[in-house]
Amino acid sequence: MEADLAEEAQRTMADPGERGVVADERLRLVLLCAHPALPREAAAALTLRLVLGVSTEDLARLFLVRTSTMAARLTRARKRLAGESFAVPSGAELADRVRVVSDVAYLAFTAGYAPGSGPDVLRADVAAEAIRLVRVLRDVLPEPVSEIDALLALMLLQHSRREARVDDDGRLVLLPDQDRGRWRRDEITEAIKLLTPLTDAPAAPYLLQALVAAEHAIAATSDDTDWSRIVARYDELLRLSDSPVVRLNRAVAVGEADGPLAGLAALDRLTEAELPGHRLPAARAELLARAGRPDAAREAYDAAIARCANEAERSHLEQRRAVLPT
C-alpha cells in the first residue's frame, strides 16, 4: 500500500485532473488520506506530503514538532492505510472526510502563503492548489456548507495580496506597507460575496478568521483598519478554539489597537514551549521597538533571526534589527 500511495501521489501531482468533479484524482487521494483510521493531524500531514509535496521539514514546522517526529508520523500513517480503497466514499462518511479535508486544505494554503523554510516569500502555486481543492470540495457536497464557504473566502482574501507581499527585489513586504492597488480585487469581491450571507451565521473558526481578513480588505489604507473589531473577532475565536497561534495574532492586534505595551502584556501569556520558532520573538521584537526599548528589541530580533528558516523572512528581520537606534 505504501508503494501504491507513492505511485498515486506521483501520478496526481503530475496530472491535476479535471476541476470540480468527484473523480478528481487529487481529491480521491485526499479523501483516502482523510480516512477515519488516521488521527486528524496524521491525515493532514500525509495529505500535504503526498498530494502537494510539502517537505517533511516544513510539515514539522506547521505542526510544531521535530522533523524526526514528523517523519515517523508519516510512516505510521502510510502503514495504517494498508489495504484501504482509493474509492470515493458517500453519505455521512463523505461528509466526515470533507471536514478533515477542509482543515488539510488550509494547512496546505498556509504552507504556500508563509513557507516555513527556503528562499521564497510565498509559494503561490501551492496556495492556489489548496484553493482549488476547496472549490472541488464545494462541488462534491450535495448542499452548501457555511464553514467551507468561509474557508474559501479566507483563502481568497489572503491570496489576493500575493503580488503585494513581494517587492521587485524579492523581499518581503508586510501588510501595513503593501501597495493595496496590487491586491486582486476580483478575489476580494468573490470572498466578500461568499461572506455576505454568513453575517448572521453561528460563530465558527474559519468564519471568524475570514472576517478578520475582510477587515483588512475593506480598509482603504492601513491606518483605516478597525483593529478593535479585529481584537473582538480574535476574542470570539479564542472562546471557540484556543491555540498559541490565535493568541499570538490577538496580541499583535492588541498592540495595534491599544499600543505596544498592551501588546507586550498579551504576548507575555505565551511561552516558547507553546510556540517554538521565530514568530513569537519576532512579534515581541517589533512591539519592543515601538515601545522605545531598542536593547530589548535587539535581543528579541537576535532570537527570531536564529530560529527563522525562511530566508526572505530572516532578511526582513535583519533589516528591522539594523535600523534600531543604538
Rank of each mutant, 00 (worst) to 15 (best):
Y106T: 10
G91M: 05
L74Y: 04
G170N: 04
D167Q: 08
L174C: 08
S68A: 15
S117R: 13
H159D: 13
P89R: 10
V101W: 04
L151I: 03
M155R: 00
Y113H: 14
R135N: 12
L172N: 01
A87V: 13
L122V: 07
L94T: 11
G170A: 12
L174R: 14
V88E: 05
S85N: 11
E57V: 10
L62R: 07
A60Y: 00
A164N: 06
L122H: 13
R61S: 12
A82I: 02
G170V: 12
R132Y: 01
P115A: 09
G116S: 07
V136W: 11
D168M: 11
T69W: 00
L175I: 13
L152I: 09
A153K: 07
L172S: 03
V126C: 07
A114H: 09
R123P: 02
S102E: 15
A77Y: 01
G116H: 04
D167F: 03
R161T: 12
K79C: 10
L64I: 00
Y106K: 06
S102N: 15
L81Q: 08
F86K: 02
L64M: 10
L62A: 12
E147M: 01
S160L: 00
R182Q: 14
T75H: 12
R184K: 13
T110M: 10
L74T: 05
R184A: 15
L137F: 07
G170S: 09
A60I: 05
D179P: 02
L81H: 05
D120A: 15
T75Y: 00
A108T: 05
P119L: 04
S85T: 14
L59M: 02
V121N: 01
E147K: 02
L154G: 04
P119W: 04
L174S: 13
V173P: 02
L157S: 02
P176F: 07
P144V: 07
T110V: 13
A71H: 08
R123V: 11
L152K: 00
R61M: 13
G170P: 00
F86I: 13
L64D: 12
E147T: 14
P176G: 03
L156E: 10
I131R: 01
L94C: 10
P115D: 11
E147H: 10
R61F: 10
D179E: 13
L137N: 05
R180D: 06
V100F: 00
A72E: 13
R66W: 01
V101H: 05
A108Y: 00
F63T: 04
L152G: 05
A127C: 03
V98K: 04
W183L: 09
R135P: 05
V100N: 06
A164K: 01
D169H: 12
A127I: 07
E84D: 12
Q178N: 02
V126Y: 01
G170T: 13
Y106W: 06
V100Q: 07
L172T: 08
E163M: 12
L74D: 11
R171W: 03
R76Y: 06
G118E: 03
V140Y: 05
D169Q: 15
G112L: 05
L141P: 06
L156G: 09
